[in-house]
Design a protein around this nucleic acid. Structure first.
Lengths: 128, 128
DNA sequence: ATAGTGGTTCCAGTAAGGGGAAGGTCAAGG
DNA sequence: CCTTGACCTTCCCCTTACTGGAACCACTAT
């Protein structure tokens, strides 16, 4: 599978995919013509990367998560430990998003959608 | 209020706060000694930036959201429109995080935490 | 054969900061 | 009064995670 298809299916640009190869996140094979030859497994990894990056996980977070996916000889105790750390991070993110969601949707509700300039966004956005 | 306090309260580093001033996200006053003098309102903005950035919103997303907060002459119709776009983004993020959470917590559950190398993470992580 | 599309590498630039130097400022203690 | 230490300032370069563009090679189609 060529990089164009992979780009389409994973949601990453070809540029980004090449970059991810550079830094060792994926290691596609090569065809005799020099083209990268991706397999299904690579698509899954890249799709995951696409999502995780959009959610604010760093490349190194992603590397840790992919290592779980990758390492055939892993001990499940390690997997469990790493996964738990990431789970905690995810839960924090969900909570923060939830708070932002509440604030914004409250705002949307309160805002009559008219031309008055007194939307109550101010009180909620950055509450400590 | 000096930058150190603001850093502590907002969760951003002093460096980042100065950078945000550079790019026009905040405009603290200055004391006669040249120190930045922040007000409560600035803390709220910075706290919000801290959270939003950690969740993968771009600076430009944040700028749009802060514009709502900032613009005293805004029409609530505009506010509502922008807020709705952001709400949709947030909902997507929550859904994606939810999927990652399910996958990982499933993994944590399935993984006995022993030394067997067959953790079932593979099937879930990058499902298209 | 030639155009067009899509692949390759490489080099340079951007975004969003971080590290650290060189120096000014303030409060406390001797 | 002076110094010490913590905190502030600007400036410049470094890093991360890409993005754009040039120059060139490969496959397909007319």
């Amino acid at each position: 599978m060529n990089i164009g298809i992979v780009s389409e299916r994973s949601g990453l640009t070809a540029k980004t995919i090449r970059y991810y190869e550079d830094i060792g996140l994926v290691k596609p094979l090569r065809d005799s013509n020099g083209y990268r030859a991706f397999q299904e497994k690579e698509i899954h990894k890249l799709t995951f990367l696409s999502r995780a990056r959009a959610l604010g996980f760093t490349i190194e977070d992603c590397r840790a998560l992919l290592a779980l996916y990758e390492d055939e000889t892993r001990a499940s105790a390690d997997v469990k430990r790493i996964a738990k750390v990431q789970l905690a991070q995810i839960e924090e993110k969900v909570a923060a998003l939830g708070a932002m969601h509440d604030t914004l949707s409250h705002l949307v509700k309160e805002c009559a959608g008219d031309d008055r300039p007194d939307c109550p966004i101010l009180e909620g956005l950055g509450k400590v």
